[in-house]
Amino acid sequence: MIYSAADVPVWAAAAIAFFLLFGALLALIGAIGFLRLPTFYERIHAPTLSTSWGTGGIMTASILFFSIAGGRLVAHEILIGIFITVTTPVTFMLLARAALHRDRVENHPDVPTRAELVVSTIQDRASDEKGA
């Protein structure tokens, strides 16, 4: 079945256009940040722009379009949204762990080592107990 854009009222078309452009612009800003930011750990933040509201905006536009043009609720785009939200942290966490592992092997100075993390955790827990 082919849905026609002429069946959509003008206010809905404006909303669809807004959500589409909002999502696409966020994806573009994410890509620009991905190119501009200097280190790997800063760059990891940029693609989350396009996986959070970049995806959200375009999926909202798609749901609005197909629901209004078809005259009934078509919401299967929500599945893509949920899927992307749940899988992105898995990918990024695995990649970050791989990157930390590689940087530690090369003794990269900016990356906290395991020993430093153990010490700072023990200190934090001690100060929490003192405060409580």
Binding site: S4, A5, A6, V8, P9, V10, A12, A13, A14, I16, A17, L20, L21, F65
Partner: peptide, 11 residues
């Protein structure tokens, strides 16, 4: 009208 809006924004 709405077809033009959607077509432009999609492009």
């Amino acid at each position: 009208m709405s077809a033009i809006i959607i077509f432009t924004s999609v492009s």
